[in-house]
Amino acid sequence: MIKLQTILVEKINFEKDETKRLLEKLDSESTYKVQHCIYYPYLFFEYSVQKKNFFDPIEGKLGCTIDGVNKIGALIDTYPLLDEKKIADGQIVNCTLSLPDAEAIAKKFLLDSILRKRKVFTIPKLKMTQQKIFYRPYWIVKGNEDKPNHFLLLVDAVSGKFHPLH
């Protein structure tokens, strides 16, 4: 029996057909079959940033995601659009990172990013305003299915970016 979990899932921008079209447009000589969807864990953090300095004030909100398996941070420009969905266990990659551990990584990552990009001399204050675990949908796509040179791609269903699978 398939076990279902209720999770927060990012909204799909590239449905099956669009994903197929995207790849066929890039490479019309191969055939592509979008097989199924995998949900990958990320931890989202939003912080309000405050640095009162007459010459170089910084104020506003900053968000980042932390890869729930590889613990890698990424800055985000827009708030992820999330929906609650029931998803089968076999489609969900387990999150191996706890929220407190991820928070420490996120804070360090954001501070490093601010220091590198703004070249500020004093460390700004970060106050967490939101934190969430969510899952991003990725399509598993098989290229040239019945040929000896077949291959698998992982396609980000939100951005359309892809990477080969081995």
Partner: peptide
């Protein structure tokens, strides 16, 4: 053309998913 447009920034995710697919039987969605 596919090789040329690979998004290297999702490489870590791809490696994790590759291992994941070997461990579980994928459910066709």
């Amino acid at each position: 053309n596919i090789e040329k447009n690979i998004a290297k920034d999702i490489g870590p995710e791809a490696r994790t998913v590759s291992l994941f697919l070997k461990q579980v039987n994928p459910v066709n969605g």
